[in-house]
């Protein structure tokens, strides 16, 4: 069975200014694809709006029964931001670690 994958690759600083645009892209992707992959490789920095978007995306995907995967390396700034904010216990270097962490939190 072939997968209908959609990969989203935001770049640079992903924060309040670009968040709504990314939210719309994610919603469209969830409407048309499964799984949806978010590529972190080109993200330099983030803010809280993006973190909220990740949680919201995981919840949305779960509601729809769709796969939502994270991919790529995380920049040091992104990893540290997630620890400072209390979203991860240790600085993640891979998006996959973050995906597990977020899902783990929400499964509890």
């Amino acid at each position: 069975m072939s997968e209908n994958i959609k990969v989203l690759s935001p770049e640079g600083v992903v924060g309040i200014e670009s968040c709504n645009e990314l939210r719309v892209q994610l919603l469209q992707a969830f409407d048309t694809a499964d799984p949806v992959v978010l590529n972190f490789a080109h993200i330099e920095r983030i803010d809280l709006t993006f973190v909220q978007l990740l949680y919201a995306g995981v919840r949305e995907a779960r509601l729809r029964g769709i796969g939502f995967r994270f991919n790529g390396d995380l920049s040091k700034e992104v990893g540290e931001y997630l620890v400072t904010g209390g979203f991860c216990k240790e600085v993640p270097s891979q998006a996959r670690e973050l995906e597990n962490n977020l899902v783990e939190l929400q499964d509890k």
């Binding site: 968040c19 919603l27 709006t49 909220q52 919201a56 995306g57 949305e60």
Partner: peptide
């Protein structure tokens, strides 16, 4: 830090700002 994220809405209802 312990972050509480329960109040985050699903994507369709999320107000990013």
């Amino acid at each position: 830090a312990i972050a509480y994220t329960e109040a985050i809405q699903p994507l369709a209802r999320l107000e990013p700002e």
